[in-house]
């Protein structure tokens, strides 16, 4: 399967923060959810992918091209949505369009108008008066108006109300129905991903933990609940992290079947949420690193 984004052995350190030997591949034609806690390196990774930051070592290839030689070709095919406002505050959407439109060869005015209508965006109001959700939709409109093949979104849902979030997810869902778009989508609101993500990429402390198909996570990972007497040095090895209380333990395992065979009926197995995985991985990371 073709990879749209490939990061290989990326190292980058600055301001006391480090990305270590990060390798990520994003598959063409799918939605990849990019998760990790605050300060895990999500924004840094996205900035590296957008060439806003240069890596200290390692290679980045987008659509099979590198930024050194093909910066403009690559960016022609990328649409971007950021968490922060990236518009000139005192311009209207119409004026922003005049500035952004000439940058793209594939600009499609009809598509722009279509999404402006669909998202009910005001063309003649200054950008600074638009709500966060509106600005996000405006960014998405620009991305869609030049028929971007790859849409990169950095925390597009943070700070949006639930209705707006669901609306965005529906839009993205519809986008994926017709065409060969790829979406790379960072978030720490992991429930957003339940509805649309095909793959999950998880990073922590600047390190890549895993990239997996969403449904496989449920097959491999489990929350295990049982009594404390079941735990000993050997069985603890099976878990990423364990939370002990007076009444028993709760732990995350990445080997659901093995744990099921090992403990049999003495424990309860539950499907973990992405949040469970993030929480226990962080806990495990603190314990064993």
């Amino acid at each position: 399967m073709e990879n749209v984004i490939e990061l290989q052995h990326i190292n980058k350190s600055f301001n006391g923060f480090q990305v270590k030997d990060l390798s990520i591949a994003v598959k063409k034609g799918y939605v990849t959810g990019f998760i990790g806690g605050n300060g895990a390196g999500k924004s840094t990774t996205i900035k590296l992918i957008m060439n806003l930051l240069q890596q200290d070592s390692g290679s980045i290839s987008i659509f099979g091209m590198n930024y050194m030689q093909h910066e403009k070709e690559i960016k022609q095919r990328i649409g971007f949505v950021y968490d922060e406002n990236i518009f000139y505050e005192n311009l209207t959407l119409k004026e922003m369009k005049k500035i952004i439109q000439p940058a793209y060869k594939n600009w499609d005015d009809k598509a722009f108008q279509y999404f402006v209508d669909q998202f009910e965006l005001p063309l003649n109001k200054k950008m600074k008066t638009l709500s966060k959700g509106m600005k996000m939709k405006a960014s998405l409109t620009f991305a869609l108006a030049h028929h971007a093949e790859l849409i990169i979104m950095d925390e597009p849902t943070s700070g949006l109300d639930p209705i707006f979030r669901r609306e965005l997810l529906n839009i993205l869902h519809d986008l994926m129905q017709n065409g060969d778009k790829t979406i790379f989508f960072s978030t720490h609101i992991t429930t957003d991903l339940d509805r649309i993500a095909d793959y999950i990429t998880f990073i922590q402390n600047g390190k890549h933990m895993f990239t997996k198909e969403f449904y496989k996570i449920e097959e491999e990972y489990a929350i295990v609940k049982g009594t404390l007497d079941l735990l000993d040095r050997e069985t603890e090895q099976e878990f990423i992290a364990i939370r002990k209380t007076n009444s028993g333990f709760e732990a995350l395992t990445a080997h659901k079947n093995r744990v099921a065979n090992l403990f049999g009926d003495t424990v309860i197995l539950e499907n973990p949420t992405l949040e469970d995985i993030m929480y226990y991985s962080k806990k495990g990371g603190e314990l064993y690193v």
Partner: peptide, 13 residues
């Protein structure tokens, strides 16, 4: 910074 992010995300070097 945010304008620099915009300009650098657009297809300009």
């Amino acid at each position: 910074d945010n304008i620099n992010i915009l300009l650098n995300s657009l297809p300009y070097t």
